[in-house]
Design a protein around this nucleic acid. Structure first.
Length: 455
RNA sequence: GUGGUUGUAGUUCAGUUGGUUAGAACGCCUGAUUGUGGUUCAGGAGGUCGCCGGUUCGAAUCCGGUCUUCCACCCCA
């Protein structure tokens, strides 16, 4: 008995026309990464769980896909583990997990290969990652990330290059209405200290991150629940009311934070000016104090890119992490990186109608034969067509003309090469333009000429 | 993880207060048309109504469970 097949929750197939569009995005991003000197890297789908856990916060750990051990995976589990529940059993039956992002595996790679790497090390990585999230619009359980990271340097040029790469990619993709939001973890810490809520940084961050979504009152409510005092949230008001250009915000912050804030603010200014002198559009970059980001390993500048007027979350994000390799035994390596979410960029471009209408052409010519002997004749001609670098195919059997031409139509093949008895006898080929319906009897040489120039 | 929502032909969807044989469009196949496609016309195939159970004389329809879809939280690309 056969069962109807189905796909697991949150994963998708990509058909031919979808792949053409996705590849356009991948190719664009890859090209930009290369022009900035990043080198390719791939890591396995699965990692040891101890590599993955603890890097993404508690929420992140819950979203890890765990892989059941092979063989007799229950042999080390006993009754007391079972009565203790999942937290006792899971580590004993699952030692591997699917990777959750590309940054942590990259850190693991860097540590394992430090003997072979010369720092600063720039790599890009385009691979799927998996998260056991509830699927939603723009949210999948398997999705592609395109990461570029630099490790082994503190230079703020790296941050500036991230801004430049984002802008370059979006220009090529035709996305114009978006903003690159930047902030700095140390700036958030300085503000937390200034309002007298030291030690509450992470609660502060998750709350303030929601400001544009739920409004000031609810953010304050949440902070109060997290034991941040009313006095503190009152002191926060002027920070929330900061408006103006990035430089105006920075100078205001300089006054508000005093000497404590100076180093961070200088960093931000430096990043902005490096980006601008290399041609970045300052209008698209916005210092946003409410940007916090959940991943716990960020320590410096953080980025997020949001396309305006679409109902999809951020399409890119990243930041600087001072010590990601430290947990793997290689301390004091600072890195900074970011990631494009191809799946969301695809959804955004679809929503904005940025993909060109022209349906992909997968074959330039279809060889159509009316009898078996002609098919053999066409088969040989096809070899010559392909030799000339033209994409072509033959209808694989002799069938009714209607069927063969309908195939060419459906597959959007612009030319058919028609062969029957008369062509075979004359040693010629009838080339038909499927759009106009015009057809002429030509030598193979002429056919190749038309196919090469005709497209 | 919490709350809601969806599921009927290959696809998009109708289907009345529970009532005989579950429909349409598009797609597919065949023919009109055995060396010429897109149009037109005629015909045809295709569904255990997501799955399991319950209520009922009778369930696509009501109830429960489960899986799936989409959405709001949480969080995130």
């Amino acid at each position: 008995m056969s069962t109807k097949p189905s796909l697991p929750k949150g994963v998708r197939d990509f058909g031919p026309e979808e792949m053409a569009r996705r590849n356009f995005i991948f190719d664009t991003i890859r090209e930009v990464f290369r022009t900035f000197g990043f080198m390719p890297l791939e890591t396995p789908a699965m990692e040891k769980l101890d590599v993955l856990t603890g890097k993404y916060g508690d929420e992140g750990d819950q979203l890890l896909f765990r892989i059941l051990n092979s063989g007799q995976y229950l042999k080390s589990v006993d009754a007391s583990d079972l009565s203790d529940g999942e937290s006792a059993v899971t580590p004993k039956i699952a030692e591997k997990g699917l990777k959750y992002d590309l940054t942590v595996p990259f850190a693991r790679f860097t540590v394992l290969n430090q003997h072979a790497i010369s720092f600063p090390f720039k790599r890009y990585q385009i691979q799927p990652v998996w998260r056991a999230d509830r699927p939603q619009r723009g949210r999948y359980r398997e999705f592609y990330q395109c990461d570029a990271d630099v490790v082994g340097t503190n230079s703020l040029a790296c941050e500036a290059e991230i801004i430049l790469m984002i802008q370059k990619v979006f220009v090529k993709l035709g996305i114009t209405d978006y903003s690159i939001k930047i902030n700095h973890r140390k700036l958030l810490s300085a503000i937390t200290a200034e309002i007298g809520a030291s030690g509450k940084e992470s609660a502060f961050c998750t709350a303030i991150d929601k400001l544009d979504k739920i409004g000031r009152d609810k953010v304050f409510d949440e902070m109060h629940r997290q034991e941040i005092s009313t006095a503190s949230t009152e002191k926060l008001v002027p920070f929330m009311e900061l408006r103006g250009s990035n430089r105006e915000k920075v100078s205001a912050l300089n006054d508000m934070l005093g000497v404590e804030g100076k180093p961070v603010l200088d960093e931000i200014l430096r990043v902005l000016s490096l980006a601008e002198t290399a041609g970045a559009d300052p209008e698209l970059v916005e210092l946003d104090l409410t940007l916090a980001r959940g991943l716990s390993y960020y320590t410096g500048t953080i980025f997020e890119v949001k396309v305006n007027n679409v109902s999809i979350g951020s399409v890119s994000g990243g930041g600087r992490y001072d010590d990601l390799t430290g947990v793997f035994g290689l301390p004091d390596i600072s890195g900074v990186g970011f990631s494009f979410g191809v799946d969301r960029i695809y959804d955004v471009m679809n929503e904005l109608g940025l993909f060109p209408d022209d349906t992909q052409v997968f074959s330039t010519v279809l060889v159509v034969a009316f009898d078996d002997q002609s098919w053999e004749y066409g088969w040989q001609a096809l070899a010559g067509i392909r030799e000339a670098g033209i994409q072509g195919e033959i209808y694989p059997e002799v069938a009714k003309p209607k069927k063969m031409f309908a195939y060419a139509d459906k597959k959007n093949i612009p030319y058919t090469l028609i062969i029957g008895e008369s062509e075979r006898v004359n040693n010629t080929y009838t080339l038909k333009d499927m759009r106009s319906g015009d057809q002429t009897e030509l030598s193979l040489e002429k056919v190749l000429e038309v196919l090469n120039t005709g497209q």
